[in-house]
């Protein structure tokens, strides 16, 4: 008790230092993105830009590369992937959680096995497969390989298991088909789980770099993370002001969404580890 004030101060001192280290990269990113070339390389570092000309970086970033297109691609790919994952995972999760059928235990075992496989492992064969079907370098190449999420199946199954059996019995008595039960009864009760999974999926694919790097050649098809790479030019020397402007634009949607819906984000992103 005697040291409580000192202890509290110590706690805040350490945590605040940590907090500064955590946010500093974001702050510097925005700071540099608002500076002119001259300011950036000025030997005297200052956090705030001295002139408003740095805003030019953003104009240039959008002019130099189809940044809008990258963002749009990101939205398209993330939405497409999430919809496909939900469409396939939900009925399967329901069958695994609530129906008795031959093959269920085996299917569940394969789902658990699938959870162990990191996403980079299927890359080579999936690449070959897409090439065979002539699908490389297309939206399909970005969306299709992620259309199924065994984690999504597993997670939604866990959620569905908590739905009382009586509710499903009641729905059957009320005349719902099994397909209708999935979408009208199970889905609404598992909305929190689906949102958390959706955040996990969207954050994962917005930020993914490995697969778009492999699958995409055409700059117009690049996702945001891949698009940033096009701002790096070895020959002419990278313009860091513009690069940081692009980085800010790419990071902004998720960071803003996180700050608005922290609880959901933290739940969703920690869930990935909760296998």
């Amino acid at each position: 008790m005697r040291t409580s004030i000192a202890a509290a101060l110590f706690r805040h001192l350490i945590l605040a230092t940590g907090a500064v280290l955590m946010v500093l990269p974001f702050v510097l990113m925005v700071s540099i993105s608002l500076k002119t070339e001259g300011e950036i390389y000025h030997p005297q570092f200052s956090l705030l830009p001295t002139s408003p000309d740095g805003i030019e970086n953003y104009v240039a970033a959008f002019a130099m590369q189809p940044l809008w297109r990258y963002l749009l691609n990101g939205v398209l790919v993330c939405v497409g992937i999430f919809l496909a994952q939900a469409l396939f995972a939900l009925p399967c999760a329901y069958a695994l959680a609530k129906l008795r059928w031959p093959g269920r235990n085996l299917t569940m075992a394969f789902v658990l096995l699938g959870l162990l496989i990191p996403p980079q492992v299927p890359a080579v064969p999936v690449y070959i497969m897409l090439w065979k079907f002539g699908l490389l370098d297309s939206y399909a190449a970005l969306i299709l390989p992620s259309a199924i999420s065994v984690f999504g199946i597993f997670l939604m199954r866990q959620f569905f298991r908590t739905v009382p059996d009586d509710l499903i019995s009641a729905a059957r008595m009320d005349g719902l088909s099994e397909v209708a039960i999935v979408w009208r009864i199970m889905l609404p009760t598992a909305i929190p789980g689906l949102i958390a999974f959706g955040i996990l999926s969207v954050v994962g694919h917005w930020n993914d770099f490995f697969w778009p790097l492999i699958a995409i050649q055409t700059p117009e098809l690049a996702t945001p993370a891949l698009g940033v790479m096009f701002f790096v030019t070895a020959e002419a020397g990278t313009n860091f002001g513009r690069l940081m402007a692009a980085a800010t634009v790419v990071n902004a949607p998720l960071v803003i969404a996180f700050l608005i819906a922290q609880r959901w984000f933290i739940d969703g992103l920690t869930m990935s580890s909760m296998k």
């Binding site: 955590m22 946010v23 990269p25 974001f26 510097l28 990113m29 540099i32 954050v203 917005w206 930020n207 770099f209 945001p224 993370a225 891949l226 940033v228 790479m229 790096v232 860091f240 690069l243 940081m244 692009a246 980085a247 790419v250 990071n251 998720l254 960071v255 969404a257 996180f258 922290q262 984000f265 933290i266 992103l269």
Partner: peptide, 14 residues
């Protein structure tokens, strides 16, 4: 938690 949501690639350049 903020860095967890960040897109790593652009942050690498930062």
């Amino acid at each position: 938690f903020l860095p967890v949501t960040a897109t790593l690639l652009p942050m690498a350049f930062v």
